[in-house]
């Protein structure tokens, strides 16, 4: 008998929670394929190492963009491999709860559930990421008080007001950490005339990226290809430059938080001033994000202790109490 699973199928990372066991898998959502034969050559960390460094016959990429499936067949194969790795076989078909962005369309929703069923799940249900994050971040969502969660992921950023086990107000934008990486790539190309890969951009973001001035004067030495000469070239980047480069993306995320605050009923709005808002998701680890949101909204912001795992832990709780919480699945309330 297979143990039921909760999957946080993210644009950047995939986490799997097994009922009664906890998180059993946490790895990048990347797959490398042979372009000619279609065979899977690598997944997860091994495939991630290949991004931007493959010969012509290999394609290494992420099958999800903005939280939605961009390649149905590859996603199905990735889910099948994931299920196999956690012990699911043809004869043991578990129930699966998958976390997805609340902004995905009906077609995208169906694509995810179909991919999971075809990959070996007996039943596949979806739950909104902010709801799962609120459960996983241990917010008192069973009480009639306003709980606000800001989930900044790889491809989406979602803000939700939750009370009494349901979403009261929601604002989602298809902007996330990968857009920050892309903004850094574009800036370096435009201002310094060198091309850098997405992995290098991600490293720059981790090294000196920030959403608000944090008094850090570290600089980053970046190597790329000169667009004029085609030769390798090194440039020095400062935190101010990176802040300027990612300003549009950060502003869009903050603006979506403000829109969500504006949607909240007044009775719940007052709760935020005392209880604060909770930041989860990998994007929330960007330096200065908490301070920036706090400065622009004048509402206290707290960082979740398990920013990367909150969503899958929340979905894991749902799988542990499947019968009682099945009313929370997307589609069940509509």
């Amino acid at each position: 008998m297979a143990r039921d699973l909760a999957i946080d199928l993210g644009t950047a990372n995939t986490l799997v929670y097994m009922k009664g066991r906890g998180i059993v898998l946490n790895e990048p959502s990347v797959i490398a394929l042979n372009r000619q034969t279609g065979a899977v050559l690598a997944t997860a960390h091994a495939a991630w190492q290949m991004i931007g460094r493959t010969p012509g016959y290999i394609v290494a990429g992420r099958p999800l963009r903005g939280g939605a499936i961009t390649d149905f067949e590859i996603t199905e194969r990735m889910i099948r491999l994931l299920l196999q790795r956690v012990g699911v076989s043809r004869f043991t078909r578990p129930k699966v709860v998958i976390c997805v962005p609340s902004a995905i369309t009906e077609v995208e929703r169906r694509a995810v559930t179909d991919a999971a069923r075809r990959a070996g799940a007996a039943d596949a249900n979806l739950i909104e990421q902010p709801m799962a994050a609120a459960i996983g971040a241990d917010l008192p969502i069973d009480e009639p008080v306003g709980n606000m969660v800001i989930d900044i992921g790889g491809g989406t950023s979602e803000t939700a007001v939750i009370s009494l086990g349901g979403i009261v107000a929601l604002e989602a934008v298809r902007i996330g950490s990968f857009d920050i990486d892309a903004a850094i790539q574009n800036y370096v190309r435009r201002e310094h005339g060198i091309a850098i890969g997405e992995r290098t951009a991600e490293e720059i973001k981790k090294e000196i990226g920030s959403a608000d001035p944090i008094g850090d004067d570290r600089q980053a030495e970046v190597r790329g290809r000169d667009l004029m000469t085609g030769l390798p070239k090194t440039v020095i980047l400062t935190p101010e430059e990176i802040r300027f480069a990612i300003e549009d993306v950060v502003s869009s995320i903050v603006a979506s938080v403000i829109r969500c605050l504006a949607k909240a009923p007044p009775e719940l709005s007052q709760d935020f001033l005392t209880r604060g808002m909770y930041l989860v998701g990998g994007g929330s680890l960007l330096r200065g994000v908490r301070e920036r949101i706090e400065r622009e909204t004048r509402v206290p912001v707290r960082q979740s202790t398990a920013a990367l795992e909150a969503v899958v832990l929340g979905a894991g709780h749902v799988i542990e109490h499947y019968e009682a919480l099945k009313g929370m699945f997307m589609g069940a309330r509509r």
């Binding site: 946080d8 644009t11 950047a12 990486d181 981790k206 994007g283 899958v312």
Partner: peptide
């Protein structure tokens, strides 16, 4: 959990 982490969220 050690200090820092992956900035790309799921």
């Amino acid at each position: 959990t050690p200090e820092g982490g992956d900035l790309d969220g799921p």
